[in-house]
Amino acid sequence: MMEQLMDYVKPELLIVTAVLYFFGIALKQAEFIKDKYIPITLGATGIIICGIWVTSTAHFAGAQDVLTAVFASITQGIVVAGLSTYIHQIIKQAGKEE
C-alpha cells in the first residue's frame, strides 16, 4: 500500500510527510488540541505547506494555471498528511504486543 501511495506524491514533497509526522507528535504532547482534531490539523497544515511549494515553483499564465496549482496543493497536502498518519499508525502498531 505504501508503494501505491508513493506514486501519487511529488518526490519534492516527501519531506512534508516527516514534518507533519513530528508536528503531529508535538500536537499530541502539547495537549491543547483534542486527539480527534489532530488529523484534520495535519491535513490543513499539509495543504498550506504544499500550497507554498506549488506557488513558489509554478508559473501562472492564466486562471487554468491557478486552478491547477490549487488542485495540486490540496491533493498533495491531503496525501502527505495521510502518509504521516499512516506512518504513525505503523509505528504505533509495531510497538504493540499481541
Rank of each mutant, 00 (worst) to 15 (best):
Y37Q: 09
S56V: 05
H88F: 08
E98W: 14
V80N: 12
W53H: 14
S84Y: 11
K92I: 05
G46A: 11
V19A: 03
V19M: 05
E12R: 12
I91F: 15
T75Q: 13
G43F: 08
Y8H: 14
T41F: 06
I90G: 06
A72K: 08
E98K: 14
S73L: 05
V9S: 06
A94W: 14
I52V: 14
I38V: 04
Y37G: 02
A81M: 07
Q76R: 10
V54W: 12
A18K: 01
T41G: 01
G62K: 10
V66M: 05
E12G: 00
T55I: 12
Y8S: 06
A58L: 01
V9R: 12
A18F: 11
Q89D: 15
K34G: 03
Q4L: 14
K36G: 06
Q4P: 00
A61M: 08
L5C: 11
L5I: 15
A69G: 12
H59R: 10
E3W: 04
W53I: 12
I90T: 14
K28G: 00
Y21M: 08
E3Y: 03
V16G: 04
T17Q: 03
Q76A: 11
Q89V: 13
I78R: 05
A61S: 12
I91H: 10
G62V: 11
L14T: 07
I15A: 08
L20N: 08
V16E: 02
G77W: 04
T68Y: 09
F60D: 01
D35C: 03
I40R: 03
E97G: 10
V54F: 10
A94E: 13
G51E: 04
M6R: 11
I49S: 08
K28M: 00
A63R: 08
I15R: 07
L5S: 06
L42D: 03
Y8A: 09
Q93E: 15
I40Y: 09
V16N: 05
A72W: 10
I74R: 05
K34L: 07
A63V: 15
A61T: 10
L20H: 09
G95Q: 13
G77S: 04
F71C: 02
T57D: 06
K36V: 15
I49Q: 05
P39H: 06
